[in-house]
Structures are given as structure tokens and as C-alpha cells.
Amino acid sequence: MTSLFEVVSTESSVDTPIRRITVTVNGKQHTLDVEPRLLLAHLIRQGLELTGTHTGCDTTSCGACTVLIDGVPVKSCTMLAVQADGHDVTTVEGLASASELDPIQEGFRDEHGLQCGFCTPGMMLTAKALLDENPNPTEDEVRWALSGNLCRCTGYQNIVKSVLLAAEGLRAKDDVEEDEAS
């Protein structure tokens, strides 16, 4: 781990300012001392060793670094770690439970919604935010929701199908849960 995330590199001769933050990532609370300029994506990747969040473009354009902050998709390469203080972060590693995949992950696998896999975590998290809001989106709504995430391999058509399949899966799951509850 580099000096950016350690409590303090006390031997450091520069007077690096340090801020203490508390973030909840995938349900687990972390209290960390970070440099104010540290990007959230780097805190997640190097500091917390959750390397499923990828960095692609550095300019908030490609969406490979998308995570959910309190359920809202955010590109973590242009958000400072200190801005996440007190917030709830979901990364791709938080999608599946120990025993089962999220229907969104199943959708991407079943509809061949990925090839190199680099954009996939960001795509899935953006899709999750969409489906949380709108469980029954149209194709156009899916395409619009994903328009902040770039993919160079698939041509998007199968990604869109993946999300629509996931929506179906989630609705079916909700129906079952409702039946069980009633």
C-alpha cells in the first residue's frame, strides 16, 4: 500500500495534509486517513483492494469506474475520496452474495453482454441503478441510461438485452418474494 492510504507516512518530510473519512463499502464500514487529493477510484482499487472498479479515461467519459454512492451511479475517477465521507458505496464486488449472482450479473452472462469485461462492472452498476428506479424499462430507456458508459467490444446490443433480461429476472424474483410474504 502506498503512502496515499496509510495512516500517515510519518517519515515523510513533506507536510502532507491528511483527512479522516468514514465510508461504507459494500456494507462494510471503513475509517481511513487519506490525502485530500486522492481519487475515490484509487481509494477503492488500491486502498481497499477492490479491483473490480476499473479506471479507463480519467475524464468522466467512459464509465468503467462507475460505482453507486447511496444508490446513485457516480464515476469514481473524478470524485475525491473525501467526498465519499459518510456515504454508502457499492462496487461490483457488492453485487453478488456469497451464494448467488445478482440477476444483472446473470443477465450479462446469459445474453453475452460482455467480451473483454473491462467496462462490465460499470455497466452493471449503472444498470442496477436504472432497474432500482424503473423495474420495467423500454429498450430506449436502457440505452439512454447506459449512455454514460462506453463499450468497445460488444456494439451494445447484447448489453441492452442483458439489462432487459435482468429486469425480467428481477421482476420474477420480486413476485416470488411477494408471494412468499403474502
Binding site: 462496487t91 452472462r109 453475452h112 469485461g117
Partner: peptide
């Protein structure tokens, strides 16, 4: 056939060069 590599990619468990420390 469903892709073998997807099992790691959809979990964010791929191993790209920047993931290596």
C-alpha cells in the same frame, strides 16, 4: 456455450495489469 471467462468478469474478479500489485 456460455463464456467461461464471464464467471470472473461479472464478479469484478478479472485480473487486468493494473489490478496486479
Amino acid at each position: 456455450r456460455s463464456r467461461v471467462e464471464d464467471n470472473r468478469f461479472i464478479r469484478g474478479m478479472g485480473n487486468y495489469v493494473d489490478d496486479i500489485t
